[in-house]
């Protein structure tokens, strides 16, 4: 019996495929006497998200905002300090739930660095067959699956199966990485900056392929990137992160068409203009993102926010639902005390 058939939907289309609640990960900072130190990097702080079946959830943010940590938490490459995850109704790593290994069968990941994510000593076929074999697929079936996977990502099996990673171009390597992520027939694929290192002309090829694979295999994506244009192209909903927190979350139309958080607006208008007659006149915000060790009190964006007031220093804004989207800003909370907020 083939134990690696595509997994069946269980809870119906309305049940979120993945639901994460209150995820937190703080990394201790090395240093201090005997490597011990009180300081922590607050990489991800009480983050909750849900991914609907068949959607693409885009995650954007600058370096150090914790977006890659989120990816690794969701696939349990690192263990969260706190928080729970539910995969299609099954709690993960809890009694009566599914194990981390079962989670990994259904959730897979593609990494940014196409070279570092392939073992240089293994042929492409060996790399692709590794996971199915580890899950007990017989050798002959694994070979057939490798051919099938290479076909799916547009690489001729006869030509590429026996090659080594260094003999492929960056785009071809990333296709192999995508094929590997599909080897266990997962339902959710996390793409962590999966096209960021590629040249633009190759990036377009891979993006087209991702769109096709999603339809063909009924996949759900979490697409993590710093490139707002690519996220806009691919995503149904978008989550904006700043220093380990969600600042805004909503449909792609709402986030790009009517951004509510000052950071989202800054991020969007920091995109270089493609029109030489309408060049950017002024940078939307000044300075660099602060260090995630010791983030600012209250609202973490307040140090760079043009609208920061006293309340922003004292109180951390909750992620408030404002209808079209959810936003964590005192200006959007009724009665928060911010001068731009509505009074109750």
């Amino acid at each position: 019996m083939d134990s690696l058939l595509p997994l069946e939907d269980r809870g119906g289309p309305a049940q979120p495929l993945l639901l994460a609640t209150g995820l937190r990960k703080h990394f201790p900072v090395a240093g201090g006497l005997l490597g011990r130190s009180r300081k922590v990097v607050r990489a991800v702080d009480d983050l909750s998200l849900s991914v609907a079946k068949g959607e693409t959830l885009g995650v954007v943010g600058e370096s150090g905002c914790g977006k890659s940590t989120v990816a690794r938490l969701l696939i349990r490459l690192i263990k969260p300090d706190r928080g729970t995850m539910v995969l299609d109704g099954d709690p993960v790593d809890e009694p009566h739930g599914i194990t981390v290994n079962e989670l990994r069968r259904q959730v897979q990941m593609v990494f940014q660095d196409s070279y570092a994510s392939l073992n240089p000593r293994l042929t492409i076929a060996e790399t692709l067959a590794f996971a199915p074999k580890a899950h007990g697929l017989p050798a002959a079936e694994a070979r057939a699956r490798v051919r099938d996977l290479l076909d799916k990502v547009g690489l001729d099996p006869a030509n590429y199966a026996e090659r080594y990673p260094h003999e492929l171009s960056g785009g071809q390597r990333q296709r192999v990485n995508i094929a590997r992520a599909l080897a266990l027939r997962p339902r959710l694929v996390i793409l962590d900056e999966a096209v960021s290192a590629l040249d633009k002309s190759v990036e377009a090829q891979v993006l087209n392929m991702l769109v096709d694979l999603k339809t063909e295999l009924g996949l759900t994506y979490i697409f993590i990137s710093h490139d707002l244009n690519v996220v806009q192209y691919l995503s149904d909903r978008v989550l904006v992160m700043y220093l380990g927190k969600i600042v805004e979350l909503g449909s792609v139309e709402a986030i790009y068409g009517n951004p509510q958080h000052p950071y989202t607006r800054a991020l969007l208008s920091a995109r270089p203009s493609m029109d030489p007659r309408r060049r950017t006149k002024e940078a939307p915000i000044q300075g660099d993102p602060p260090n995630p060790i010791d983030p600012p009190s209250g609202c973490r964006f307040r140090t760079r926010c043009p609208f920061a007031e006293d309340v922003c220093t004292r109180v951390e804004p909750p992620l408030a639902d404002i209808g079209t989207q959810a936003v964590a800003c005192h200006m959007r909370v009724v009665g928060s005390g911010h001068s731009k907020a509505a009074t109750p």
Binding site: R72, Q108, L122, A131, L184
Partner: peptide, 20 residues
Amino acid sequence: FDFVDAARASGASALTIVRV
């Protein structure tokens, strides 16, 4: 390296990952 993480994410046992 990411390929070790990828192998872990595939659910292989530690011994298999070390060996391969």
